[in-house]
Design a protein around this nucleic acid. Sequence first.
DNA 1: ATCCCGAGGG
DNA 2: CCCTCTGGAT
Length: 211
Amino acid sequence: MREIKEELVQRLATLYPGDAASLCELSFEGPFQLAVATILSAQCTDRIVNSVTEALFGLFPDAKSLAGADLGRVETLIRPTGFYRNKAQNIVSFSRELVERYDGEVPDTIDRLVELSGVGRKTANVIVTVGFSKPGIAVDTHVIRLSGRLGLTEFTDPERIEMDLLGWLAPLDAAAFGLRLILHGRRVCSARKPKCEACPLGDICPSFSTL
DNA sequence: ATCCCGAGGG
DNA sequence: CCCTCTGGAT
C-alpha cells in the first residue's frame, strides 16, 4: 500500500507540476486577497470567483479599505458567487477583525485564522499553505471525494481525512498534493460522471470503472 | 441537520 | 429538471 501511495504522489506531480502557489487557480495579490478569494470560493467555481474579485480588489485591495466598504455595494459585486449575503458580511467582518486585531495583516496560523469571520479549517489551510508556504493540506469536497475513491482513507469527515493524509505525506508536499487532487477532480475524476476511461491513474485506483 | 443561494453542466 | 461547485455558521 505504501508503494501505491508513493506512486500516486509521483504521478500526480508529473501530471500537475508546480508548487502550491502555482497550482492554486485563484487570482490574488498577497495573503489578504487570497483569504477573501478563498472565502468567496465556497460552493462556487474558481472561474466565477476570479471574475468578481477583479472588480472587488480594484476597489478594495486590502483589509483597511474593505473594512470600510458599504455592505450593499459588496453584495452586488460578489453576487454571482452565490451565498452572497453571508459572504459579503463575512469578508467585511473579516477585514474589520484584521484591522482591529492585527493592524490589517493576515495571521499565518490555523488557530488564529479560524477565529476570524468566514474562515473555517479548509479556508485557513489554503491561506497558510498557499499564502505563507507553510505545511498543511486543505480538505475540500474534491479532496474528500478523491481520497475516498483512491482508497486513501476510510473516513468522510474532513478533519479526519486531513489527519489521515498528513500521517503519511511529507509535510511540505501535502499542500501541493491536495491541490493536485483538486485539479484532477475537476478535470478527470468529477463528482457526477468521472472519466475513468481517460484517467491516467486507472491502473492503481480501487474505484476504477466501478463508478 | 439545516440554511445560505447563484451559475453552469448533463 | 437535478446535481455540483475549492464551506461556514447556527
